[in-house]
């Protein structure tokens, strides 16, 4: 299935755009998605941590992704 991924903060720069579209398997977990993303965008891995939210909820690596889920990649922000 194809999922849309929204980018926030520096993830926008890493993706080069505010959202990307990605092909994942139907039973893909958050862990699988992370692996695919970090392979395609190595700078994402270097962030050490970033939040993944699915339908406005924080998710864990074992959670499954479903069709039409809204996925957001939210890295830390430092400014004040």
């Amino acid at each position: 299935m194809r999922v849309d991924i929204l980018a926030f903060g520096v993830a926008k720069d890493i993706f080069g755009q505010p959202s990307i579209s990605m092909e994942i398997t139907n039973d893909a977990t958050v862990y699988n998605l992370k692996y695919l993303l970090e392979n395609q965008y190595p700078r994402l891995k270097q962030l050490s941590s970033y939040m993944i939210a699915v339908n406005n909820e924080y998710v864990l690596p074992g959670d499954t992704i479903h069709e039409r889920d809204e996925i957001a990649i939210i890295p830390p922000v430092s400014g004040g």
């Binding site: 903060g9 520096v10 720069d13 700078r43 270097q46 962030l47 050490s48 941590s49 970033y50 939040m51 924080y58 890295p75 830390p76 922000v77 430092s78 400014g79 004040g80």
Partner: peptide, 19 residues
């Protein structure tokens, strides 16, 4: 809980990226 740790060198600050 949100960000267990951060690699500070990878996150631009306001001087670099603007605000």
């Amino acid at each position: 809980d949100l960000f267990p740790k951060v690699n500070e060198s990878q996150i631009p600050n306001c001087t670099e990226g603007g605000v």
